[in-house]
Simulated scan of single mutants.
Amino acid sequence: MPPDRARNADVLDLTITQKHHSLTNHLIHTKKRKEKENRPTVTHTTEVIEISSDEDEEPVPPPPRTPKKGAPPTPNERARLLLTALEKKFRALEQEKKQLEAQVNCLRQENAEFRAKGTVHLNNDDVDEHILCEVCSLTMWTPYVLTCGHAFCGSCLESWFDRALRDWASRYPQFPPHVLQAAHIARYGIPPPQYLCPKCRTAVSSKPTQDFTLKGLVGTIAKAKGEAKPGAKETSFRKYFDS
């Protein structure tokens, strides 16, 4: 073989060999790329955990849901409405409690002032109802109690019984005055005179008795009102009653 042809054959073989290697490398790279594409992708994510303190932040409640118009309230909505009503009533009771406490404190202060002064304020009308005689409308300095329980001045009762005795004696003009005495009328068969209570008209069956407890109370109240005790007058009911 001539030298030129042999040289060309060597060059051709080298070219073919290079192309073969290049094609082989291309096929290998293509296969690897396809395998890489078909391989499942693993995504590495970094999770960030946020740590918060309950003391610094409070959970935000979800906004209340607005019910549809005309729709019945849900159990949660009914509970919320009931809780709102109870809270409103509780606030009203708290306000009323404060007002009552203020009134009690005011009354306690007034009571303490009255005690410090040592005075007692009484309604004159209520007091007069118990210490005034219902016959003469004056203070009962010497109160006498009848069997029915009503009390009057001794002098008023004496005048009241004396008038009843005169009316009774006028029915028996044929008897002298000394006969018409409580100790003698039974001997002559004369019905005794009847004495009645000036207030309730109950028959008085025994001699009135002086009420010393009421007498002391009347005297104390009358002196506190600035009244002076009149002169004492002895009262006797012997001529009206046997005992």
Rank of each mutant, 00 (worst) to 15 (best):
P2T: 15
R7L: 14
N8G: 06
D10S: 12
V11A: 14
D13C: 12
D13V: 11
L14F: 01
L14P: 00
L14R: 07
I16L: 14
N25V: 01
H26Q: 11
L27G: 08
K31G: 01
K32H: 11
E35Q: 14
K36D: 02
K36C: 01
E37R: 14
R39W: 06
T43I: 15
V48I: 15
I51L: 09
S53D: 08
S53E: 03
E55S: 07
E57Q: 12
V60Y: 06
V60G: 07
P61E: 11
R65S: 12
K68H: 06
K68F: 05
A71S: 14
P75H: 04
A79P: 00
L81Y: 08
A85G: 02
A85D: 12
E87L: 09
K89N: 13
R91G: 08
E101R: 12
L107D: 13
N111H: 05
F114V: 09
A116W: 04
A116Q: 12
L122R: 10
N124H: 13
N124Q: 14
D125P: 02
D128A: 05
E129W: 02
C133P: 05
V135D: 00
S137F: 07
T139Y: 10
T139S: 08
M140N: 08
W141E: 08
T142Y: 03
P143Y: 09
C148W: 09
A151Q: 11
F152G: 06
F152E: 06
F152M: 10
C153L: 05
S155M: 14
S155L: 13
C156N: 01
S159C: 02
W160Q: 03
W160F: 08
R163F: 04
L165T: 14
L165H: 15
R166A: 11
W168N: 01
F175R: 13
P176R: 12
H178K: 03
L180C: 00
L180V: 00
L180D: 00
Q181N: 03
Q181M: 07
A182P: 02
I185Q: 05
P191G: 07
R201V: 05
T202K: 11
V204K: 01
T209F: 02
Q210S: 05
G219F: 07
I221S: 05
A222C: 03
A224I: 04
G226L: 10
G226S: 11
G231P: 02
A232H: 07
K233D: 03
E234M: 03
F237N: 10
R238A: 15
